[in-house]
Amino acid sequence: MEPGHPAVAALPGRGPVKAGLASGWDSLLLPALGASLLLFLLPQALFVKNSLYAPLGFGRIGDELTLQNFGRVLTDSLFLYSFRLTAYLSFLVAVVAILLGFPLAYFIARSQSRWRSLLVTLLVVSSFITVVIKSLGLIVILGGSGPVNRVLVGAGLVERPLTLLNNQFGVVVGLLHYTFPLMALVLLSVVQTIPASLEEAAEVMGAPRRRVFTRILLPLCLPGVLAGGLMVFNMSMGAFTSAALLGGGRVPVLPILIQRKIISEVNYPMGATMSVLLLVAVVALNVLAVWLLGRFRRLSAGMRGTL
């Protein structure tokens, strides 16, 4: 609108409309920024500092800064095993979540039936329910006399009930149940942005289904799929509940080790040291993944440019 427009001129004391609406937004950021700095950087700093004191037992800590905790943790074979185990299980859960989530998201995104909204609602309901209750239900299902084992034994597929709990299998199932609904919702939003007409065009031109998938769907979805996988990996690395309940204390992932150090052993410096290492590893992996994704995006944008 022109500044001299009657509608604007009729409002005395008002400058140009755009300028009038443009100012003053900056300060809105301040409350959240202040709160985040206070709740984020300050505690993190304190926490990293805490990992540098020597534990003296019974919750007391030394008063000199030292790196000895890191030395002790990094040479502790249980910690190193736990670290590898946590990363391995999280990676496994992320891969399975992608492999199961993508077909599901694709099905929902392309479905025009009246079931569609029900399917989405069920995903939201499942993500709404606390992981403790999910784990309890899974314990009933996977238990020695649970329905899964009854069916397997009843059908004569196995002689004795399988051990599906208190081991890595149970933990993976639990983590999958915890992260899957969110993963499916993220993937759904990714697939939804890809018009079905693109696939139809390729099919009309005679591309076989597999080629439509590898040349159209996969490249377009890959950044979103990897971002979703990263989210599942992050969630699993920090997940304590499902590992504790379905692992029955026999799958010592890092969150469990940290919780034991702090709550059972009241060893804050060692707990903090382990937490710092977990945090550093996860953040480093995320930075690496985001960097790779950025490179991939530039690469595919460049390729599109040459076509």
Partner: peptide, 26 residues
Amino acid sequence: LKAFFRAPLQIPLVVSGVVFLQFYYV
């Protein structure tokens, strides 16, 4: 700025718990 506000999503939850516990102690 957006990355800063997204950061808590990348912190393992159990670490956030430990961080707040120590923060409140101090």
